[in-house]
């Protein structure tokens, strides 16, 4: 599973890393560090990834099976 953050849609709301601190963190400006990129999600952190997806009002975050 990969968690992706669309660099054009992410506006630095910060709700993904607040809801899923075990998976995501903020950069110096308040954007999630993987803005415009992706990370591999270990199976045990699947819930955290879902929380991040469900917290983003920009719909900038997506979780895919690849």
């Amino acid at each position: 599973m990969r968690l992706r953050v669309d660099g054009n849609l992410c506006s630095g709301q910060g709700r993904c890393y607040l809801r899923a601190p075990e998976l995501l963190e903020s950069d110096d400006e308040g954007f999630v560090t993987i803005r415009g990129g992706s990370i591999e999600v270990p199976p045990e952190l699947r819930d955290a990834a879902d929380r991040a997806v469900n917290a983003c009002p920009e719909d900038a975050i997506s979780l895919t099976d690849d």
Binding site: S11, G12, Q13, G14, L18, G30, N54, A55, C56, P57, E58, D59
Partner: peptide, 23 residues
């Protein structure tokens, strides 16, 4: 709520600058 994609701090590139402070 399982999902709370509220717009209380606005959305888009002009989202509230002070949101983190406010929270």
């Amino acid at each position: 709520r399982d999902s709370n994609k509220h717009m209380g701090f606005g959305i888009g590139q002009h989202r509230c600058l002070g949101a983190h402070l406010a929270r």
